[in-house]
Every structure is written in C-alpha cells, then in structure tokens.
C-alpha cells in the first residue's frame, strides 16, 4: 500500500533529514514510526502526503509513484488520506460540525449528506453532544476526537497520525489509540508516528514498528518482536 524505495530528503544542501529510507506498509496494517525528536518521523509523514517532495527515491502509494504526481492532482490524492496531528490543526473559530464538515464540503457534497455523515463520524468518536461548540472551547482530548472525526468522515483508506497523543494525558491517549484500533479493524491502514514509549509498549507489540535515528532506519521491528527487549 505504501512503499518507500531509497528515499532521501534534504532541506539544506548536504544534510539529510531522511537518508536511504526503504520500507513497505501493507494494506490494513497498523504501523508505527518512532524515534527521538528530529529523527525524521514528521518528514516521513509529510512525504506520504506530498506536502514535501523527496530529494531522491520513489514513494509508491497503492502502486502509484506519487513523486510524479502533478500539482493539479495532489489535492485529489490527499482526499484519500486522513491526517491527525499532535496540535489537532482545527479551525478554532468554527464549530465542531464545521470542522468535520469541511472535509466533505471541499468535495461539493450536498448539505443533507454532509450533516448525516458528520453526525455519524462525531457519534463514532463520541463528541456529538458538542456538535455546535466552537473547537477552541474544547479540551485537548475532545479536540483530538474532532480531528479524528474530520480524518475519517470521508472514509479514507489510509490514516496518518503525527504524535496524536503528544498533547494528551495517559488516559485520554489510550482512548484515542483505541479509536485508531477500531478504525484499523474496519479496514483502514493506520500509520502512527510517535515517540511515546507507553503507547508503543501497549500497542506496538502486535504491529510493525519502524525506528528512525537521525534520518536513517535504525531498525524495522516486525510484529511480535519486542522493541524494548
């Protein structure tokens, strides 16, 4: 589903944020990317969404090389991916409904269908009672639920999450992770970048983990191997 072949990314000439990265994520997989701050986790996710372009190498999503995707087609490609961020990235002045609905509005769906889908997504993440609240009035955990609802409302095949529990306390973090597990069981491919050891200990055991260090792959731990052995 997602394949990196000798991918390099350099922001400054001669210095690589990612160097010779090759790995494969299969369809329906629950995949972790970990490493210390600055290891290249976010860069890797940005390459998947084509927010940035690789300096060298090929990135294949569902068999298509996204490096050659023209600018005019990027937005359609991005609609196939749901993204969740550590800082939620919500439209703060807008309501919960509007934040989730925007994913469907950009597709030009009729408002009746949007209302139905948004309500369903909000119910799924358990925040439907606050549908008309402005997102800035919500707690961190609630905001992350809204962000997840926005990511899933269009039923994307791939969901990327960049440190989704980074701003949340332990209990809420587990709730959010359970949501990703449920999404995965519905068939979505989940890619989570995190350096949270507790999360990796609890959820990483049964999943593949890519460990990055200074932009290079340190280790690719297959499921059932222990990261902390």
């Amino acid at each position: 589903m997602i394949q990196f072949s000798s991918v390099y990314k350099s922001y400054i000439r001669g210095e690589y944020a990612l160097e010779d990265v090759s790995f494969k994520i299969n369809k329906g997989e629950f995949f972790f990317i970990t490493g210390h701050s600055g290891a290249g986790k976010t860069t890797l996710l940005k390459l998947i969404t084509k927010e940035i372009k690789p300096t060298k190498g090929a990135i294949l999503i569902e068999g298509k090389n996204i490096s050659v995707l023209s600018d005019s087609k990027i937005y359609k490609f991005r609609r196939e991916i749901g993204i969740v961020f550590q800082d939620f990235r919500l439209l703060e002045e807008r309501t919960v409904f509007e934040n989730v609905a925007i994913s469907l509005k950009i597709r030009g769906l009729p408002i009746r269908k949007i209302k139905k889908e948004v309500l369903e997504a909000l119910r799924w993440v358990g925040i439907h009672q606050k549908i008309w609240n402005k997102t800035k009035t919500l707690s961190g955990g609630e905001q992350q639920r809204v962000a997840i609802a926005r990511a899933i409302v269009s039923n994307p095949k791939i969901i990327l999450a960049d440190e989704p529990t980074g701003n949340l306390d332990e209990e809420i973090s587990y709730e959010i992770m359970e949501m990703f597990k449920r999404l995965n069981s519905r068939g979505a491919t989940i890619v989570i970048a995190t350096h949270d050891k507790l999360i990796l200990e609890r959820y990483g055991k049964k999943n593949n983990i890519l460990v990055l260090q200074k932009g290079k792959i340190k280790q690719l731990i297959k499921r059932d191997e222990s990261l902390f052995a």
């Binding site: 937005y75 990235r89 439209l91």
Partner: peptide, 16 residues
C-alpha cells in the same frame, strides 16, 4: 494562513 494549510492538507483544491 493556518486555515489554508489545514484546507490544503485535507485535500481542498486551489480553487476552493
């Protein structure tokens, strides 16, 4: 700016 970055990320077209 932030709104635009979010919109781009979720797949809004340049036209939108």
């Amino acid at each position: 700016k932030e709104d635009v970055l979010i919109l781009r990320m979720i797949g809004a077209s340049n036209f939108y």
